[in-house]
Amino acid sequence: MKIMVAVKRVVDYAVKIRVKPDKSGVETQNVKMSMNPFCEIALEEALRIKEAGLAKEVVAVSMGLANCVDTLRTSLAMGADRGIHVEAARELIPLTVAKILKKLVEVENPGLLILGKQAIDDDCNQTGQMIAGLLGWPQGTFASKVVLDKEKQVVTVDREVDGGLETLCLDLPAVITTDLRLNQPRYATLPNIMKAKSKPIKKYTPEELNVEIKSDLEVVQVTEPPKRKAGVILSSVDELIDKLRNEAHVI
């Protein structure tokens, strides 16, 4: 069985995000970019399944600008067998990503598709659900535990839902989206970084896959959350009462 994993290149989550002065989006120039943490978890899970002898190959897919190849290299250094880069000059909305993934699934025929539950840049949390819908596959989202049964061709997924866990059993092929507690991703070791250099990355364009890139959405503006005002130190209880009464109007 083959596992396909989608990995997204995003602004590193430890970076302090800055909004562009024209409010069209966030600043990505000269900003550290890394693999989306949820995608890292997805990849780790795929690698563990492969290492347990339940899958033969792990294919990492990324979409976007040319430097997505860096993210794919990281995936290969972690242990993915090969990469696919769908080059696109503009930002892709989840539906487009799902359509492209569907085409790739048709080419690659994976038995399992694992994605991060969301990307930390746009926080959409839509792609996994959309691709499952497009493919007509069962989906296990927000997975915190994945157990694959090769013989029965099913996968059992524990989902983190508000207030508890839900356990689902899905027929393969299936779509899984990963939550934070599923696993702890491995580090890229030097020997694996070395090996990754010779692993292939195949390039596609959306046109080659017959997917039209369009967006039904328009980003009107992106703004920063309101800044917290600096506190003041008061010298007496009387002053505090005065402020509460006359400025804050709470007493």
Partner: peptide, 24 residues
């Protein structure tokens, strides 16, 4: 990476990891 790989081949490093993001 080139430096680390050549140091590894030269036997100066026995093993190693390279941080892939700020968390690492």
């Amino acid at each position: 990476e080139a430096f680390l790989l050549s140091s590894m081949e030269g036997g100066l490093i026995s093993d190693g990891v390279l941080a892939q993001d700020i968390n690492q």
